[in-house]
Computed example of a mutant assay.
Amino acid sequence: MVTQRVLVSGRVQGVGYRDWVVRTAQRTGLTGWVRNVRDGRVEILVSGEDETVARLIEGCHEGTPLARVDHVEAFAAEDEKRHKGFTKRFTA
């Protein structure tokens, strides 16, 4: 198991990006959350098997058809509490 914090920049708010992350994470059994950040980025905290988390992060470079991803930054993190599923959170 691995936990990664991911920051995605570009045109990723208002284009269904968070919903795409939730659907993808739930379909693959990942846990965590996704939220918009006031500076225009999307933040993701994701936990799961190494390969599954890596595939989600790779997919973040594309996202939805309306998104334009400029940069994806992922780094190791600790899950402050174990999540039972994957949810969308309010803007931070």
Rank of each mutant, 00 (worst) to 15 (best):
A76W: 03
I57G: 03
T64Q: 02
L66Q: 15
V42G: 08
L45M: 11
R5G: 08
V53M: 10
A67E: 06
T91C: 15
R11V: 14
R68S: 15
D19P: 04
K84H: 13
R35Q: 09
D79G: 10
T52H: 03
G40N: 04
E62G: 03
R5C: 06
V21K: 02
K88R: 15
V21R: 04
P65F: 02
R82T: 10
V22H: 05
I57R: 03
V22R: 15
E78I: 05
E58K: 09
D39Y: 07
D50T: 14
E62Y: 04
T28W: 02
R68L: 12
V12W: 01
D50G: 12
V21S: 05
A92K: 13
I57M: 01
F75G: 12
R11N: 13
A92M: 07
T64Y: 01
R68Q: 15
G85K: 12
E49H: 12
F86K: 05
F86V: 09
D19H: 14
H71Y: 05
R89S: 11
P65D: 13
S9P: 07
L30E: 03
R23H: 13
D39A: 00
H71T: 12
A67S: 15
C60Y: 04
R41Y: 03
A76M: 06
F90I: 09
G32T: 08
E51C: 02
H71V: 07
G59N: 08
D50H: 12
V8T: 02
V2P: 03
G63I: 03
V46C: 02
E78G: 08
A92N: 09
V21I: 12
V2L: 02
G59M: 05
A54L: 03
G10N: 10
K88W: 12
I57C: 01
R5I: 07
G10L: 08
E80W: 03
K81R: 15
D39H: 05
E73K: 06
E58N: 06
T24K: 04
K81M: 11
L66Y: 10
R35P: 00
Q4M: 10
V2R: 08
V69I: 03
Q13Y: 09
H71I: 01
S9H: 13
T24P: 01
H71A: 11
A25V: 02
R82M: 10
S9C: 05
R41L: 03
Q4S: 09
G63Y: 00
W33I: 04
R41E: 03
T31K: 09
R55F: 00
